[in-house]
Amino acid sequence: MQKKSSLMKKLKKYWPFYFLALPGLIYFFINNYIPMGGLILAFEKYTVSGGIFGSKKIGFQNFKFLFSNADAWIMTRNTLLYNIVFILLGLVISILTAYFLHELKSNMSRKFYQTVILFPSLLSIIIVSYLANALLAGDTGFINNHILLPLGLEPISFYSEKKWWPFILVFVHFWQMTGTSCILYLANMSAIDPSLYEAASMDGATRWQSFFNITIPCLVPTIITLTILAVGKIFNSDFGLFYQVPMNSGAIIDVTQTIDTYVYRGLMNTANLGMSAAACFYQSVVGFCLVMITNSMVRRISSENAMF
């Protein structure tokens, strides 16, 4: 009773704020909550006639099939390894990029470099994949035609050789995403009181010592939040990057297949909605658990930096 009335009081007092939040909440409900009903597909053998709710319930059959499949191991491994590299290397790359931008004295050059770094993230992944193709293509590609051949080296058939792709995908990912991921760090760095650096320089710190003793510790809350969020998505992948950039080439699927591309290909080839739903369910549950685990670990180490 008490609780209810205090909620009403809050509603009454802050209604403009709740009102402002309403469109977001409605969107969130329609887009993120209603489709959850579709998760029931993961436990069904979907037929068009039966529809989402009327198809035959088959329990964990879909999961069994998913995990007994030889692809399950490969796609899980790929998804995990790429994400771990993206998270760890991403920390270093985006913080360093932000730091270099931040250290630029002239506003003009900072804006210039920031725009240059940010630009790739505005490109559609389709365009990016054709840019990559222009570099990598076997007979017409820039690398083969204008670098390797003039040097008298053997041309490389990128789209059929697996070993290049972990590097290509990691490179393309950072080429495209560094601009956006460093913005948050850059904003954080600009918020650090400049007199802290002055105090450190009087205390005898070199630039790098200030970086490690002041900049990084001040960024820790942001680093932790972003990392926890990224860990929650560790079973998800950037579909465009893994599907479009390799040009859907079958020869290199061992190193480009992720859970998301698997689900998509499953739908395209076999229309197996049940198994795709099972894969998504698996992604979300594991992601949720990982967020909870990471957060509780952070809370144990330094409670002020935990997200919740």
Binding site: S195, L196, A199, A200, D203, G204, Q209, C218
Partner: peptide, 26 residues
């Protein structure tokens, strides 16, 4: 030279002890 700043400029993530020890550690 040492300087005391108007807004103190203490390192927020360090304890008082570490704040004071920082220059000596360096």
């Amino acid at each position: 030279i040492a300087m005391v700043f108007q807004n103190y400029a203490l390192y927020p993530h360090m304890t008082v002890y570490d704040n004071m020890a920082f220059s000596l550690k360096l």
